[in-house]
Amino acid sequence: MAAPVAAPEGIRRSGTVSRAFSAITANPVALKELRLRMRGWHSAVLLTGYLCVVGAVGYLGYAGIAASSSDVVQVGGAGSSLFTGLAAAVMATVALVVPGLVAPSVSGEREHGTLELLLATPVRPRGIVLAKLVAALAMVALLVLGCAPLFCIAYMLGGVGVREVLEFAAFLAVGSSCLGAMGMLASVSLRRVAPATVVSYLAMLVLLAGPFVATFAWQDASSPESPVVTATGVQGALEAVSPVMGAQALMASNSACGVGGLVTPLVGSLAPGTFNTCDGPVQYTTDMGPLGTWQTWEATLAFDGVLAIASLGASLLVFTKRAFP
């Protein structure tokens, strides 16, 4: 009898991905969420407004570049700056959108009296929570993918590689998941949509602004002269838990101008001739003690991942306990 032959690694992987995709698409609650979200006028307004904001940033940045320089090398660096500016705009708007998408998901079902009917079906409580979160994050993915043509402009200008794109995508995915999981915890814990939404936005504000503001208390006021800046102690910890600092570090490592990549092209568009290239990328790192020294954005990514898992676990626990009193 012939021994079973293991499937090649690529096939196994694609099978796993296929099963995961099937699990999502086979969940009727996730499909229902996606359909109902797209049917309301809210989604059209959200998508249009979001693309207008990011498109305006992209247009002004590109116009600034075009008006200020014809130098090929400079424009190549500007591609990187445009990418950074667009990435910052996308991350900021996604942070504003995610709590609003996730917070009403379970609390809304409860408020409208549809949750009881869902719970009376064989769909398990954890299936409901996961489906709602996946549907909300799928909406975020749609928003991000809607900006793809703008990112293509930056890519074609040069100065942006696949690695930068993947790093940005990973940072955005984990950050969105973290905010989404926190919003889900509020949604399963509170019975009404309005309090759940307020608490979700407060949690987002605390996560984004808290460590960022606190970092200034420990920050060295001088500009970095070295291309590698390592934060230690309390400042290192604060930077590791601050998504804003993590995003800044990610942009600084990829762009000649860091966060200035957003500002510089905009200034250039408003005042042609003032566009300048920057000194070069800066690597922000964080001393993680026994874990060694990490890139700051990697440390933030890890922290956001842990926070997302913890929030999701708490959401599942709370909802499962409350589903059947």
């Binding site: 549809t114 869902l118 064989p122």
Partner: peptide
């Protein structure tokens, strides 16, 4: 007292619950 999904059609509403089962 039960809620409904206003923007679903009657057949979609039943189909959704059928798929839940």
């Amino acid at each position: 007292h039960f809620g409904i999904y206003d923007s679903m059609t009657a057949s979609e509403y039943l189909s959704f619950y059928a798929s839940c089962y």
